[in-house]
């Protein structure tokens, strides 16, 4: 179960990252929302828009599956691991600056997710030990 959960969590991070990159690619072309038909047409004409849709559908099923096993607070926080992948991609793909402080921030996020992963699985193990049913 733990391996499956980890695999599902990593898949969630990949789909979330795909979605955020799609948002940025679409937003760069569409500009600010102006509630016009032309704006909607422009958004719908972007291939990246469909990448967002696909990523969201895949992330939805993955997230709902993970939510069966995990509390929403820690799961939602851990899902912020996408910040690390998106930050790295924004540097590589969009040419945004990546500083030492940002790298330190990414390390903190990874550290927090690792702590959550270890302590939550220990708590689950203790609960199963106390209540094997």
């Amino acid at each position: 179960m733990r391996g499956g959960f980890l695999l599902g969590f990593l898949a969630l991070v990949v789909f979330d990252t795909m979605g955020q990159v799609g948002f940025k690619l679409t937003a760069e072309v569409s500009g600010v929302l102006d509630m016009s038909l032309d704006w909607a047409r422009l958004v719908l004409a972007q291939p990246a828009f469909y990448m967002i849709v696909a990523a969201y559908i895949l992330a939805f099923f993955t997230y709902m599956t993970l939510m069966k096993e995990a509390p929403v607070g820690p799961l939602f926080a851990a899902a912020h691991l996408e910040l690390v992948t998106v930050t790295v991609l924004s540097w590589l793909w969009f040419g945004e600056r990546l500083s030492l402080v940002q790298l330190l921030g990414c390390a903190c996020i990874i550290g927090g997710v690792v702590i959550l992963g270890v302590t939550e699985s220990q708590d689950n193990h203790q609960q199963h030990t106390q209540d094997p049913s």
């Binding site: 607070g73 939602f76 926080a77 940002q102 330190l104 550290g111 927090g112 997710v113 959550l116 302590t119």
Partner: peptide
């Protein structure tokens, strides 16, 4: 999650989520 579902905010959870939040702050600050 705490208010509606009674999810515990244990020291480890609070610490880990704070670390993630701090990391997010650093990413933005940087």
């Amino acid at each position: 999650g705490r208010y509606f579902f009674g999810e515990q905010i244990t020291p480890w959870r609070a610490g880990a989520i704070s670390l993630i939040a701090f990391g997010v702050m650093l990413v933005g600050w940087g």
